[in-house]
Design a protein around this nucleic acid. Structure first.
Lengths: 143, 143
DNA sequence: AAATAATTTGCAACATTGTTGCAATAAAGT
DNA sequence: ACTTTATTGCAACAATGTTGCAAATTATTT
């Protein structure tokens, strides 16, 4: 399912981040490539044929976050959704420049990479750091 | 701390929603009025002098959500934040028309009632239902 | 290629958070 | 004040997230 090209891409990402290339990390990144959407913690334990240890998943995701390899997407429930950063995110300096879309029908969350977040004028006294936009509705596949 | 006027406002809200006026509900709504920001579940167990039963808080918040009295605010962690709906929200038909601001310094989330969410052009095939905008940065009190 | 050093993983035990059924309690309508 | 209806709190449970430490894997050195 995973092409040789993808495997090399994944290995490259890990090397760039100074992370050892381990089975767990590779498999988790493969899941991201396959899913083409945002994943939440539980997905990793289920999606993988051989399910990972819960602790390992938590730690791996945290590592990827620290390295700026993935980013979190805001949700209105207790789940935490993660997606791969396609843009130029540096460590601890992640900024989403795109809009996230959550489909009310199929429940998936995707990154609309080509839809950039609009600028927002804040009231006097507020300093802006980052803007998160989550649009909900019906995605193109569920229409 | 709570004025007579506020008490009447709270009772009015509950009556409008066809909800019995109980101590728990009144106290929780008072906390919303006092806090002037978004609250998460744990706050209610702590903030109240007499702490509520966890189950009661969950059920009360769910009731308020169902009636459109409060709304959820997206977060990137496992917490769920709630704020009072000041605008005209009907049951199960909530739409935020304003931007939410999360302060990286003090951690509080507030509703910027006067800052409306910008319109966003989605890619072809997507149907929009609701837009959530959360801006993070430094609020006017922490500057 | 083997040995060592450094990192990563999995287990166990625990802490926290969210859920359900049911009996006790409190609110609303008469 | 009494009855009906709705709400609350308890207990037990389920799910989710965390920590320390030993075993296993990866990278590095020889």
């Amino acid at each position: 399912m995973t092409t040789q090209k993808q495997k090399e891409q994944i290995a490259g990402w890990l090397r760039t981040c100074n992370l050892s290339i381990t089975d767990t990390r590779v498999k988790i990144l493969e899941l991201f490539l396959k899913s083409n959407g945002a994943l939440e913690h539980g997905d990793f334990e289920k999606l993988a044929g051989k399910s990972f240890d819960r602790v390992t998943v938590y730690r791996t995701l945290q590592t990827f976050l620290d390295k700026g390899l993935i980013h979190k997407i805001p949700t209105t429930d207790t789940s935490v959704r993660y997606a791969i950063c396609k843009s130029d995110c540096k460590e601890h300096e992640h900024h989403d420049h795109h809009v996230h879309f959550k489909c009310d029908a199929c429940g998936t969350t995707t990154c609309l990479d080509d839809t950039s977040v609009p600028s927002i004028a804040l009231p006097r006294g507020y300093a802006m750091n980052n803007v998160e936009v989550v649009v909900s509705g019906v995605c193109k596949d569920c229409k």
